[in-house]
Every structure is written in C-alpha cells, then in structure tokens.
C-alpha cells in the first residue's frame, strides 16, 4: 500500500469519474466473492435478529422456569434451557442486541475518533502530531483489556460503559494506522504536486489522502468490530459487562462454561453465535479489502 503510486485510483472516486455510486459498486464487487455473500447474508440475519428480537423469539429471554432447568434441545426449546430454565434460543436471539451494539458502537467510536486524530497528526505533523501521538502512545501503553476493565470498573458495570471503554481502547490503533498511511501518501508525487499547486488542505485530505487510506482502515474496522464483540465477551468473563438477566453471548458463554459437562448446549450455542458473527464480519472485511484493491480489480 505504501508503494501505490496511483493515489487517486481508488475505485469510484470522483477523479476516475465512474458513473456507478461507490457503495453500490463496492457491494457488487464484494458479492462476487462467494464466501462474502454467505458472510453478508449471515450478518443481515444477525442484524434482523437484533432488530426484531422481541417479535421472533418464542419466549421472553428472561423468563425463569425452575421446573425446566438444563433441558437439552427439543422442539419446545430449540437450543435447550439454561441453569434457570430460560429458553436459550430466545436468549441467543436477544443476545445479538448486546453483542452487535457493543461491536458496532465501540468500533464506530474507535474508527471516527482514531482516524480523525491520526489524519490530523499525519498530515499536519509538528506540534499537532507530537501532542496526538503522545496521547495515543500513552493509551497504547496500556494493555487494552486493562484499560477497558479499569474504565468499566470506575464508571460502573453496564453495557453502555463497556462500549465506551472498548471504543476508547480501539482509538489508538486507528490513529496510528491512519497516521502511518497519511505519512506514506503525503510523500507521493501527486500529493506534493497538489500541494505545490496550492490546493487547500481540506481538498487534499478529502480528495487524495482519505480515499487512499481507506483499504487498511476498512480492514481494520472489520477487525475492530470483531475485537469489540470479543472484548465485550471477555469483560463479561471477568465480570464487568452486560447486566444480568439481560442476555449477552459473552455472559452466556461464561456461565455455560461452568456447565460444560452437564449442559454443553449452554455454551455451544452462544459460542457458535459469537463465532459465526465475528467470522462473518472478518470475511466481509477480507472481501472488502480484495474489492477495494485496484490491482486485483484490473487483473
């Protein structure tokens, strides 16, 4: 990426003057990868599950039934019941809300804040760079989980606070990545040419820099969503996450691992749910990456 000399060649960018809107074009490219189609379908399913959870779950996810604890999968309870007799199928459906919102919102925080500051630092350099990067270094110097853990413990355990904490933790990665990209891109001839021609900074950033740094940022975003979902699960594992009885996959997995020998379905289904969701997001990220690479498109 550092070596790309056709900086403006990002597909769909206005310089190329392609008639097809960028996102529709991108979708078309992504869908050409078979696995990505599967991934996108899965993600759509999970998203639908999250949106329509109250209408599609057969039982209320928090309904306790002490006469039916630890039942295996059956027609009545498709994924069995948990240690309090709650329907795991309904809980997995409802749990998609916590996991997806944790993933998307945390990654969005990291993406916007991180990329913005990375861009500023890499483009303007000097004092701005210095200040931003010291802060980023300081944040990176914390192990992510520890920072998330400490922030959540200080704010009080809840899903919102966990999302804020995970979001904060993913800021520095985006910032450093964005800065590194900007540094390389700005050294390219055409950017320097644009500068010499007196193009305003805003123009250069939006027209030349941003389109060229998209590829790694998008790949990183997919990783960040996946990271956030897994981190939420880990925070639940360490005891700071979604508040029970609200289901979250991480929490269900954590409780279920204690019942591994008695009721493997308790950990199997939420585990599979995390796994499939995270995997789909990663696959989508890969497909996006391939789709966005102009070289691959040409060949």
């Amino acid at each position: 990426m550092q070596m790309r000399d056709e900086g403006a060649a990002a597909p769909g960018s206005p310089l190329r003057g392609e008639p097809v809107p960028y996102w529709r074009w991108l979708l078309g490219r992504v869908l050409q990868v078979r696995l990505a189609t599967v991934a996108l379908t899965l993600i759509t399913c999970v998203a639908c599950m999250a949106v329509f959870a109250p209408w599609i779950s057969p039982a209320r996810p928090t309904d306790v039934d002490l006469t039916a604890v630890l039942r295996g999968p059956s027609l009545k309870n498709l994924m069995g019941t948990d240690e309090l007799g709650r329907d795991i199928f309904s809980r997995v459906i409802d749990g998609s809300r916590a996991s997806l919102s944790a993933g998307l919102i945390s990654a969005a925080i990291g993406l916007t804040v991180g990329t913005f500051f990375g861009l500023l630092a890499g483009y303007f350099l000097g004092l701005v760079d210095m200040l931003i990067m010291r802060l980023v270094d300081a944040m990176l110097a914390f192990p992510g989980i520890i920072l998330a853990l400490a922030i959540t413990a200080a704010l009080g355990p809840s899903l919102t606070n966990a999302m804020i904490a995970i979001g904060i933790v993913s800021i520095p990665t985006f910032a450093r990545l964005a800065r590194a990209q900007v540094l390389t891109i700005c050294r390219l001839d055409y950017v320097e040419a644009a500068r010499c021609l007196g193009a305003p900074n805003r123009h250069i950033i939006i027209r030349h820099v941003v389109p060229n740094m998209l590829t790694p940022i998008i790949v990183q975003s997919s990783l960040a969503v996946a990271f956030a979902i897994l981190t939420e699960a880990t925070l639940s594992f360490l005891g700071l996450g979604v508040q029970p009885p609200t289901p979250s996959w991480g929490y269900m997995l954590n409780v279920g691992r204690g019942y591994l020998s008695q009721a493997p379905w308790m950990s199997l289904f939420p585990g599979v749910a995390i796994f499939l969701t995270v995997m789909s997001i990663n696959l989508l990220g890969d497909a996006l990456r391939d789709a966005l690479d102009p070289r691959l498109r040409i060949e």
Binding site: L223, A226, L230, A233, T234, F237, G250, L253, N254, R257, L260, S267, G271, I274, F275, V278, M279, N282, L283, D286
Partner: peptide, 18 residues
C-alpha cells in the same frame, strides 16, 4: 489458511483455553 486464520481471530481466547 484464510479459514484457519478466520477461525483463530473469531474464537474468544478464554473459550479456546478452556
């Protein structure tokens, strides 16, 4: 290789450890 890598990054590490 990609599938294996995807499996790797998609598995919660505490789950793998257990």
């Amino acid at each position: 290789a990609s599938v294996l890598a995807i499996l790797g990054v998609s598995t919660p590490s505490f789950w793998l450890g257990i």
